[in-house]
Computed example of a mutant assay.
Amino acid sequence: MPRFALKIDYDGAPFAGWQAQADQPTVQGAIETALARLDRGFAAGARIAAAGRTDAGVHATGQVAHADLEKDWDPFRLSEALNWHLKPAPVAVLQAARVDDSFHARFSASERRYTFRLIARRGPVTHDRGLVWQVLNPLNVEAMREGAAHLIGRHDFTTFRSSICQAQSPVKTMDEISIEEIALPQGAEYLFHLRARSFLHNQVRSIVGTLERVGAGAWEPIRVAEALAACDRAACGPVCPPHGLYLTGVGYPQNPFRSGTDS
Rank of each mutant, 00 (worst) to 15 (best):
E226V: 06
H243Y: 12
I222F: 12
R233C: 05
P242Q: 10
A229F: 06
P242Y: 07
C231T: 12
L228D: 07
C236S: 13
P242K: 03
P242I: 04
V224E: 03
Y252C: 02
G251M: 04
C231D: 05
P241M: 08
G251H: 08
C236N: 09
A235M: 05
A225D: 05
C240S: 15
G237F: 12
A225M: 00
Q254H: 12
G237A: 06
C236E: 00
Y252Q: 07
G237Q: 04
P242R: 00
G244Y: 06
Y246R: 13
R223G: 04
L245A: 11
V239D: 00
E226T: 07
T248P: 11
P238Q: 07
C236T: 07
A229D: 13
E220S: 14
E220D: 13
P242H: 01
A230S: 14
C236L: 03
A230P: 07
E220I: 10
G249Q: 12
G251E: 06
P256A: 04
D232L: 02
L228G: 01
A230D: 05
V250Q: 09
P221C: 14
D232G: 02
Q254P: 00
P221A: 13
V239K: 05
V224N: 07
Y252T: 03
L247D: 09
C240V: 15
P238Y: 00
Y246W: 13
L245H: 11
V224Y: 06
I222C: 09
V250I: 14
T248Q: 14
E220W: 05
L247F: 11
V224G: 06
A230Q: 04
L245W: 08
A225W: 06
I222Q: 15
V250F: 02
Y252K: 01
E220P: 05
T248S: 14
E220Y: 00
D232I: 00
A227Q: 07
G244D: 11
L247N: 11
P256L: 04
P242T: 07
T248V: 15
V224A: 09
A234V: 03
L245F: 11
A234K: 15
